[in-house]
Design a protein around this nucleic acid. Structure first.
Lengths: 196, 196
DNA sequence: GTTTCTCGCATACCCTCGGTATGTCATGAC
DNA sequence: GTCATGACATACCGAGGGTATGCGAGAAAC
């Protein structure tokens, strides 16, 4: 039986992470002060330091929150029914759409590599979206849809291209048109890799 | 006739930018304090604030320094002699090599999008490496080597993929092997876009 | 039911660092 | 030689991350 105290504690922690996600999305890591985070969560810094060792740890919790939510929706797409090719195309589309969400783009794509450092970010991503993307590429290779290739590398290039594409769409004056162009370009690249 | 004062002033400014490049490369923007930059340049903060409106302006000067140097070497490759196809391949190779340089990777690829904000970074890159990469893609389209396509978008995806590839090489335990794999993968992608 | 313990906070404080305001002096103009 | 200017140097301030300590609500023990 879970105590009321444990419940309150967890609720406070959630509120802190929720507030951090909102503020990091809006202002970035450097532009967000811990005082604002705690104010928004209706606690004080003591509570924050009780749950997290510092600002970076809070960021990593925010990162994990956003990515956990992301892979919930992406996993079904990657491992779903249908031809491997169609599943891969659907996964890439879904990933681009995910990158268009403000919190994913700001926290995962833009801020995390710098805040966490590239290597730590890369390592974390193995268990989240990048891991899924690599699975999608692996499934294509296994199904014989594309030539044998170092899956890791191919997935890395795709990951870089997709997030660049999404950032381009997000900052476009005509996101619909840019979105179609990005999608077409990605499909062309993928088609070019396909075995005949 | 240039005065001695003007000369000293320019020398001080250079020293500040040089120091900033070194420290931003080593520690990133957030991890570099202005006191360290001025100490390394053998001046005080008054001098820094005379030449730059703040830390961000100093970063932008560092960015411009690193990119100006980068395009010096990249321009010849993009617009050099030889078949358009070969020139494009050479340009991509040269760009990956450039991304492997610690200062380019840290300041341009990792830090700038966050410090300057994605849109400001993108705008600045139009006049630097990205602009050159787009030229390379444009030359391929003009020469009929690849199908008609929105050059801007294709260049953006490539830019994202190449910098992700370079970051992967830089953090690899076997950079030589990873380097070859990245190169092969990029060539395959490019080959897949080629008109038959 | 009462007392004691624990831990989840709240508060006060400290130091670093980006930025501001003011003063000084080396250089250049006349 | 005198005066003006601008290229600095220095002192100061407040924001913000982090540390240390105290308090009290909830849980456990009796």
């Amino acid at each position: 039986m879970r105590t009321r105290r444990a419940e309150y504690s967890e609720s406070t922690r959630q509120a802190l992470v929720d507030s951090a996600v909102d503020l990091f999305t809006e202002r970035g890591y450097a532009g967000t002060s811990l005082d604002e985070v705690v104010k928004r969560a209706r606690v004080t810094k003591g509570a924050l330091y009780h749950h997290f060792s510092g600002k970076q740890a809070l960021f990593e919790a925010a990162f994990a929150r956003v990515e956990t939510k992301a892979i919930e929706s992406l996993t079904a797409v990657v491992t779903g029914d249908g031809e491997p090719w169609d599943a891969a195309v659907a996964a890439l589309r879904a990933y681009v759409r995910k990158c268009l969400e403000p919190e994913y783009q700001r926290i995962i794509v833009h801020e995390a590599p710098v805040v966490m450092g590239w290597e730590r970010w890369r390592e974390a991503e193995e268990h989240f979206s990048f891991g899924l993307l690599r699975t999608a590429v692996q499934l294509l290779v296994d199904a014989g849809e594309i030539e044998e290739a170092p899956v890791e590398i191919m997935a890395r290039l795709l990951f870089g291209a997709l997030s660049a594409g999404a950032s381009t769409i997000a900052s476009s004056s005509d996101p619909k048109r840019t979105g179609r162009e990005v999608e077409d370009a990605i499909l062309r690249v993928l088609q070019g890799l396909r075995k005949k």
